Amino acid sequence: MAGVAAVVAVAVVAGTVGSAPAMAETPPPMQPTSVAVTLPTLIGESVRTLEAEPEGRPARDAQTVQWQVPESQERDPVIVPKRYQWVWNGDGTGHLVATTTAAYSVESGKIVAPAGAAPAPGTAVPDPRWANGGGTFTQAPPRSGAEALAAYLRAHVPLPTSPDALAYWGALRMLMTEWTLTPQQNAAALQLLEKTGDLSVLGTVTDRMGRAGIAVSIASTVRPQFTVTLVLDATTRRIIAADTVYVGGVNGIDLAPGSVVEYAAWLTP
């Protein structure tokens, strides 16, 4: 039986939902403060800000801090996010180095000190999901343009025939585990997501790395069991973080609606 992390990955990218075992308590969700701005205004301002930046060069050097609900059915009270960084070889193959970050537990919806044994931050940990290999996106993404980006994603990821924002985001998230997107590519990603009509503004927020941002919700009428809270940097408008939130409706997932089942924060290399 697939774990929650696997269920989410399949649901977000391929558009299917399965079942999963009971899991540990999850991190508290981010708490946006509503703002009086429409989505077209927000995306328009963000695209103009990003496109006004000097043209960047995409680099295959993505660094992220990530956490997923574990596959195990055991309820481990300690949450250990991991920092991932790709290391590339001259022949195009590479591997993902994973190290632990500060562990914590959650009590009554609040972050507290680890309620059990936890590895020291910076401890190297094996991750069998990412063995040596060439990665998924061996060619650089297009420099600009939502349509060009959509075609690129479709060439690398098995997207549905008519992807919604949740499906596109699943592919973009995979891309961003390998490539650090330029400002212009961030602009194209926002335009691509906006075109689906599945986005809404949540408000200002502080992400899990303490950065000021603006949160946008990604929902899906095809897969209403999950939503994504996407965070744009308040100043640069780059995509800096995302939470995947369980809404409910999947047999076997023993989590309260509103539980965060996965999160990622992108770091500056």
Rank of each mutant, 00 (worst) to 15 (best):
V106D: 00
T180C: 06
I240Y: 02
T268L: 13
Q68Y: 08
P158G: 11
A118S: 08
G3F: 04
I79L: 15
P160E: 02
T136K: 12
P81R: 12
G135R: 09
L172A: 10
T100H: 03
V69P: 00
T236D: 03
V65D: 01
V112L: 13
V7S: 06
T93M: 12
A219P: 01
D243T: 12
P160C: 10
T136F: 09
T100N: 01
G135T: 10
Q184G: 09
A9K: 13
R60I: 06
V106Y: 00
A102F: 02
D207A: 06
I239S: 04
I218D: 00
A150E: 03
V260T: 08
L202H: 09
W266T: 00
G122C: 02
P81S: 09
V7T: 12
K82Q: 14
A215K: 06
S259F: 07
F226T: 07
T38A: 08
V245I: 15
E262V: 03
S259D: 05
A115C: 06
M209W: 00
P29F: 07
T99M: 00
T180R: 11
Q66S: 15
R208S: 01
A124K: 14
T49N: 11
D254S: 14
A188I: 07
V65G: 04
V228C: 04
G15R: 10
L175S: 07
V65H: 03
D254Y: 15
Y263R: 09
R75L: 15
R208V: 02
W86F: 10
A5H: 15
